[in-house]
Amino acid sequence: MADDRVAGYAAAVLAVARAEDDEAGVTDELFRFAQALRASNELRVALTDAAVEPSRRQQIVEDLLGGRARPATAAVVSMVVGAGRGGQLPEIIDAAVDRAAADRNRTVARVRSAVELTPDQRSRLTAALRSATGADIEVRLIIDPSVIGGVITEIGDDVIDGSVRSRLSQMRAGLA
């Protein structure tokens, strides 16, 4: 039931982005907002607190995204938060991104790095992942300082971990 609800909201989000004829730009901004929502506990609480009026939650969204993101992006987020589904917003955005990629016969690769990748690195990583998986890959970069260094790639359930964080964890496990 929850999966159906997430899929329904994802379809609506995607339909709005396509209606604005800016699917790539809207989904990219939504993906970044979802990562910011995952990283900020304070923001997540503000958008999901039932004690806060829906109009107030939507006002928070407008304050955050107004002038910084496309109006369609802000409208979609405001719509989901106003519907009381702010707690499921990251899953809805992920489902929308995956569906948009699937509609283009692509597979989303979530790449975590402590720093931004250069265009050359992004294209080479895309080619390497395409070569490794045999699928047309769409890289979604997530800036995550906890990675420390290196890269972690998630494609579906598969994880390719080349981060400094994981090496330090291995060292910790070895010492323990």
């Binding site: 990748l117 990583l125 290196g150 890269v151 080349g162």
Partner: peptide
Amino acid sequence: LIDGYIDEV
């Protein structure tokens, strides 16, 4: 580090 990762993949 990133280049090494890409080459390794």
